[in-house]
Every structure is written in C-alpha cells, then in structure tokens.
Amino acid sequence: MTASITPRGGLEPLMSIGDLSDLIGVPVKTIKDWRIKGEGPVEYKIGNHLRYAASDVRSWLSQCREMSAGTSPTTGLR
C-alpha cells in the first residue's frame, strides 16, 4: 500500500478568512457576521486567527445550494 503524501505533513491546507472571502466572493465582514450568528462554514480558531478547511467549506457550500430554482436551501446554517 502506498501512503499519500500531502503538503504540510499530511494536513489539509487551511485558508484564512481573506482567502475564503476571495474564494466565495463575499466580504470579510459578512463572513464575520455569519460566525456571530452561527452560520457559515465551521472554522478553526488558532490563537486570534480563524482558519477554514477546504473540505468544510465544500460541505457548507453543498448545504447552501438550491435543489431547484427558487427553493430555499438550509441557508448555510451549521
């Protein structure tokens, strides 16, 4: 069996709140507001820094997707 080697010692790369903002096209303030309301993707709090795993962002985005036009998703709630 061959082990899969990934950057950073096998850990999934984490993105900053700015990276997430750029990725989904939403202002940082909106992401911070979602965090206060318990919405948005789950994050890691490392010291004073918030970091997001790409897998968590993908999972959260799939919950935000409408099943058909005009049908409300779960609105990204955790």
Rank of each mutant, 00 (worst) to 15 (best):
Q63Y: 09
G38N: 07
G47K: 12
R8V: 14
Y52T: 02
G40D: 04
V26W: 01
D19T: 03
E66N: 04
G18N: 13
R65P: 00
G10Y: 06
I36V: 14
W34Y: 12
E39M: 14
V28K: 15
G18S: 14
K29Q: 15
L61K: 04
H49P: 02
S21R: 03
D33H: 09
T2L: 14
G40Y: 02
V26P: 03
T71R: 11
N48F: 11
D22P: 00
R8S: 15
R8Y: 15
P27A: 08
S21F: 05
E43W: 12
G40H: 01
G38S: 06
Q63A: 11
G40T: 00
S68R: 08
M67F: 08
E66T: 06
G40L: 05
V42I: 14
S4W: 11
M15G: 10
G40K: 00
P27I: 04
V26Y: 04
S59Y: 09
C64Q: 06
A54C: 07
P73D: 04
M15K: 00
S21E: 05
V42R: 15
M1E: 13
P27S: 07
T74Y: 01
D56T: 05
K45A: 12
H49K: 13
E43D: 11
S62R: 08
V42Q: 15
P27R: 09
S59A: 15
L20Y: 02
G47Y: 07
P27H: 12
L61C: 08
G38M: 06
V42D: 13
I17A: 06
K45M: 13
G9W: 08
I36W: 05
R78E: 05
A3K: 15
G18F: 07
G40E: 01
E66F: 00
I17D: 03
P13V: 03
K29T: 14
A3C: 14
I24S: 02
I17N: 01
V28M: 09
M1L: 13
G38R: 05
A3P: 11
C64T: 12
